[in-house]
Amino acid sequence: MPSYELNITFDAAGLSALSASGQSVSIVKQSAGGKPTAWITFTPQMANSITWTEQYSVYSSTTNAQSGAVIVTSSEATAIGGSSYTLNTAGYFDAGASGVVGPTQYQIVNNDPSLIISGTAMVTAGLVQGASVNGTTVSAPICAAGVLYNQTALFTPIETIQVFTSSYSNNGIVISQVSGNALTVQYTTNTTAGITYNDQQNQFILS
């Protein structure tokens, strides 16, 4: 499975500005299906390395997928692209047949009527991905979608990320929209990218 790397550099002035404003670095991983989350949020150093592999888990949660919510997963299962995963009445995932969706897609079926969010039989579901941030392993949802009982949801992760500074303090926070000054980094031809924080414009630029 492919591995990817993002290197982020700051100068002393940039780190000082973020510290004074109480901001961190947030990374959104793009996915077709579900609301975006601040997948990774961390306090930066002058040199930062974030690495991840193209490996996902499906998850379910009874956290309401509203803006600002931190998704707390209740069940997870390692997933393979092109497969369907059914949330059964015990609250766990059964793997369905592979090849039922596109090879880079992941399907979740909610067959558990006992899970309730705000009085409605539904779950919040999506994909979880792990990463290493300056040597520390993290794992959090990259998207979140409400899935009613007896319905399905389809997710297609994309190797494109958006990086910006924010006041978020947790991984996996549901966001209504990505910051307007976020830098988009596409991993279409390369698996490694480098960006720098411009403390004059207070945003990231490609190195």
Score class of each variant (00 low, 15 high):
Asn7His: 08
Ser132Arg: 12
Val109Asn: 15
Trp52Lys: 07
Ser139Ile: 10
Thr120Asn: 13
Gln30Cys: 12
Ala95Arg: 12
Ile117Leu: 00
Gly172Phe: 00
Ser166Lys: 08
Leu206Pro: 11
Val25Lys: 03
Glu54Gly: 02
Val133Asn: 06
Gly82Met: 03
Thr124Glu: 04
Ile50Gly: 02
Gly99Met: 10
Tyr168Glu: 14
Val133Phe: 02
Gln200Arg: 13
Tyr59Met: 06
Leu206Cys: 12
Ser207Ala: 13
Ile173Thr: 13
Gln45Asp: 15
Gln45Tyr: 11
Ala97Ser: 14
Gln177Tyr: 11
Ile8Trp: 05
Gly14Tyr: 00
Ala125Cys: 05
Cys143Trp: 05
Glu54Met: 10
Asn198Leu: 04
Val123Ser: 03
Val147Gln: 03
Gly14Thr: 07
Ser114Gly: 11
Thr73Ile: 03
Gly119Arg: 04
Asn64Cys: 09
Ala90His: 07
Ile175Lys: 01
Ser139Lys: 14
Tyr168Lys: 08
Ser176Ala: 14
Thr184Leu: 06
Val185Asp: 05
Asn190Gln: 15
Ser67Cys: 05
Thr124Gly: 05
Val109Asp: 12
Thr189Gln: 13
Gly81Asn: 09
Ser60Asp: 09
Thr165Cys: 10
Trp39Arg: 01
Phe10Gly: 06
Ala97Phe: 01
Ile195Ala: 08
Thr192Ile: 13
Val70Leu: 12
Thr86Val: 13
Ala125Tyr: 01
Val128Arg: 11
Leu15Ala: 06
Tyr4Lys: 07
Ile161Gln: 08
Ser16Leu: 11
Gln55Asn: 15
Leu183Pro: 01
Thr165Arg: 10
Ala121His: 09
Gly102Thr: 11
Gln162Lys: 07
Ile161Cys: 05
Ser31Trp: 02
Val58Arg: 04
Ser21Ala: 15
Ser179Ala: 14
Ser84Gln: 15
Gly146His: 08
Asp112Thr: 02
Thr188Asp: 13
Ile117Trp: 00
Ile27Glu: 07
Gly194Asn: 14
Pro113Thr: 05
Thr53Trp: 05
Ser83Ala: 15
Ala193Ser: 08
Thr120Gln: 12
Ser132Tyr: 09
Thr189Ser: 11
Gln162Ser: 13
Thr9Val: 10
Leu6Met: 01
Val58Gly: 07
Thr184Arg: 07
Ala32Asn: 15
Ser49Asn: 13
Val58Phe: 00
Gln162Val: 02
Ile108Lys: 05
Ala140His: 00
Pro36Lys: 06
Pro157Lys: 00
Gln23Ser: 12
Ser19Glu: 14
Glu159Phe: 03
Gly96Arg: 01
Thr152Tyr: 04
Ser16His: 08
Thr43Gln: 15
Lys35Arg: 15
Thr156Gln: 11
Ile71Asp: 09
Ile117Cys: 03
Ala90Phe: 07
Thr43His: 08
Gly96Met: 05
Thr86Gly: 11
Pro113Ala: 08
Thr62Trp: 00
Tyr106Ala: 09
Glu5Ser: 14
Thr191His: 03
Leu6Gly: 01
Ser49Glu: 14
Gly99Tyr: 01
Ala17Cys: 11
Thr165Pro: 10
Ala182Val: 07
Gly82Gln: 04
Ile50Met: 01
Leu154Thr: 08
Ala79Ser: 06
Thr184Cys: 08
Asn134Thr: 10
Val123Glu: 03
Val133Arg: 04
Gln66Trp: 10
Ala13Ile: 14
